[in-house]
Design a protein around this nucleic acid. Structure first.
Lengths: 162, 162
DNA sequence: ATCCACCCTGGAGTGCACTCCAGAGTCAAG
DNA sequence: CTTGACTCTGGAGTGCACTCCAGGGTGGAT
């Protein structure tokens, strides 16, 4: 062997990602390029596994890869106070908060309807449609908060230019 | 005018969608083809506006267009009990529930960290990273629940075949 | 009659986050 | 020394949900 370090497959296994995904992350600059062995194989340090786990978590919390890249970049730069990340976080928190509330309301209604169905009292598809229809609207107004995470999408963020 | 009914632009305005989006919905069979005027213009009934609003809401609650299509199809078929939608709803409820819990935990931690920053006590980017890193893992296990709504994505749903 | 804002179509393009492919090289085990 | 599982690259393809475009028709107001 030459120059110890994890192979991409090992890293993949440890993180639950695929090798192509890891290469993809490198290609978009999310992960910095790994040092190569004499024959061109990527050799990873254990810290990369940590970094990838971080990425996975941030992603599952609704951050886009681009946002994660920014956070990572700033975080690598050191322990400096960082108004940008602060700002990003605040807006993200706001979006998360709103999303939780909308989902919770929906959950309650849906659960209630399902309970009715379980009791065999008039189970109909229209019931579900009614619930969905009665979910509160929340677009058009308060357009200031742009979603930062399509995965938390609530209400469309299109603005219909015209 | 010939044969009253809303023009696509009117419908767009009333729903906050764009005309192309409405045509797109028709093209994928989500919306049934509107009757045409003698000159080929789509003429919509008011009920279409309702249907589109329903679609928007269902979408904001995390249903994919495909799922919405199924629901709509069954709902149009009448007030019959419908185990499929029931099933869809149950799994969706489950996913929503989990997602809410994860987001809520994240919200609390993020809020706490932001509060610290507001108090000007050592505001650092690393703090945020720590929070994200400490967000609980939730993948690999419990793979039974496939997400039904990429927008509620929590943890990746790739299974790494190999 | 002339505007001009609307409508139509088919098809191509977008953004995100991958995922797959072909063709070629590498490496440890049998 | 062969086998088989890995690695590399560049580029194309995927899925969702749009979004844009070119090229042409329509219809109410001036």
């Amino acid at each position: 062997m030459d120059m110890a370090g994890l192979l991409i497959g090992d890293v993949a296994e440890r993180t639950g990602l695929t090798a192509p995904t890891i290469r993809y992350y490198e290609s978009i600059g999310l992960l910095k390029a790994a040092p190569r062995s004499a024959t061109g194989y990527r050799r990873y340090a254990d810290t990369t596994v940590e970094e990838l786990r971080f990425i996975k978590k941030a992603q599952s919390l609704g951050f886009s890869l681009e946002e994660i890249g920014e956070i990572l970049k700033l975080s690598r730069a050191g322990d400096t106070p960082c108004s940008h990340v602060l700002d990003l976080s605040r807006r993200h928190l706001q979006a998360v908060q709103e999303r939780i509330q909308q989902l919770a309301r929906f959950r309650d209604q849906l659960a209630a309807e399902l309970a009715k169905w379980d009791g065999k009292k008039e189970p109909t598809c229209r019931g579900l449609c009614q619930i969905i229809s009665s979910a509160e609207e929340r677009e058009a107004d308060a357009p200031s908060l742009d979603l930062h995470a399509r995965d938390l999408r609530a209400g469309s963020r299109r603005k219909a230019r015209r």
